[in-house]
Design a protein around this nucleic acid. Structure first.
Lengths: 218, 218
DNA sequence: CCATTAACGCGAACAGGATCGCGTATTCAA
DNA sequence: TTGAATACGCGATCCTGTTCGCGTTAATGG
């Protein structure tokens, strides 16, 4: 009585062994759902992929999906999570911590862009998700974004300590600006108004402007 | 035969006088719908305001709304349009064309913020709308955004000609960055994670960073 | 007058995301 | 063995944005 924290989905009973038969079946179902969802998102796009179709391909009823996910969008951000990890991994391998800060930032953004460019849907839905306050998926995406911002901040913090950047810059705010530049640049792309390369260049230009500044140096 | 351009909504028969009784009734209905929609958005928020409730308050059936608007979101961007006009108006009156560019930009952004701060829903839905490619409302919002970017560009172009800004800055790209800073800063606010003043300051800080640059000047 | 043509309005129906209540399977404790 | 607890699965149902087909109203032209 009186413990209905989350609406449902995602069991969290500490007394249950991870090898519990119920949980194992659950994990398998979850995997099947994700697989089906990814395939259908790829084939038809997010909005055209019906939950009922996903469920059918996963071999279950539509309502069962809600045992494992709280919303359709969560099926996507599961991917987003992995994709970000991958972007960071690619960035870190081959990263030169002594390279110019601007270069390091660009390298990270390129790695991220390369991955996102393969799936404009993901970008779009992630953005859309943040426009639904109260829904859990919004907070999940915002948390992911914060992690990205954190990484950018880390890079710039290092640059500031090496006196590559002005001493008084607020690295957190700077990281946010960089992030917002990327987000903004992706909207026209995800809407089919520009291609991936143009999007990449827009990000590049924006970052260059930020680093160089607009004011005539005096 | 074969002329179904728009799905429907918005008559455009040049042979009809604007004083045509049908059109007049239509305009009245449109106004009633907008009034009801604004009230309900205000009272319950966008997502909680049902089309059926809006229609009821407007004194008609829900489906009739689609004679005048193509989607629920269009009920909002009608406001967005006016709000932007108002922001520009407020900015222009009392604008000093010889003031420092950074100051002028800030003034405009403050004027805009002051209006948007009254209605976080509007901000959120406008953003959400741009994540729905193909739907007309997306293009409408993108067009409005472009107009804002255009105004910012205008301001900065003037600053560049007065040698306040570096000669080689891409003012269009700079304007986009400024715009993206504002958009990004509003997301946490619209999600209830920060208050309006924090949002304003974030925009302020971001713009300052952009103008000043991150690189240690050399 | 009457036929034609639009713009309007409406109730019914559709579609798809999400919820509910109930039944099943698995585990553990007594 | 039995009973409680818990994770799962499912069909029915709800909710709401949107579409459809039909009837109504107002102007136009012969």
């Amino acid at each position: 009585m009186a413990h209905s924290e989350s609406t449902q989905a995602a069991p969290n009973n500490p007394r249950l062994s991870p090898e519990d038969g119920r949980l194992r079946r659950g994990r398998r179902s979850r995997a099947l759902i994700l697989k089906a969802a990814r395939e259908l998102f790829e084939e038809r796009g997010f909005d055209e992929a019906t939950l009922r179709a996903i469920a059918e391909r996963a071999g279950m009823g539509a309502s069962s999906i809600y045992r494992h996910f709280q919303s359709k969008e969560e099926l996507l951000i599961a991917d987003l999570d992995e994709l970000q990890e991958e972007a960071w991994r690619r960035f870190r391998e081959g990263d030169d911590r002594k390279a110019p800060t601007r270069k390091r930032v660009t390298r990270f953004l390129d790695a991220q862009h390369q991955l996102l460019a393969e799936d404009s849907d993901l970008t779009l839905i992630a953005l859309r998700a943040t426009t639904r306050p109260g829904v859990r998926v919004a907070q999940q995406v915002l948390a992911l974004n914060d992690r990205t911002i954190g990484l950018l901040m880390e890079i710039m913090q290092m640059g500031r300590m090496q006196s590559q950047l002005k001493r008084n810059v607020d690295v957190l705010e700077a990281a946010r600006v960089v992030f917002n530049i990327t987000q903004g640049a992706r909207i026209p792309w995800a809407n089919g108004l520009t291609d991936a390369e143009t999007c990449r260049q827009a990000i590049q230009k924006g970052v260059d402007l930020l680093f160089g500044g607009l004011d005539k140096s005096g």
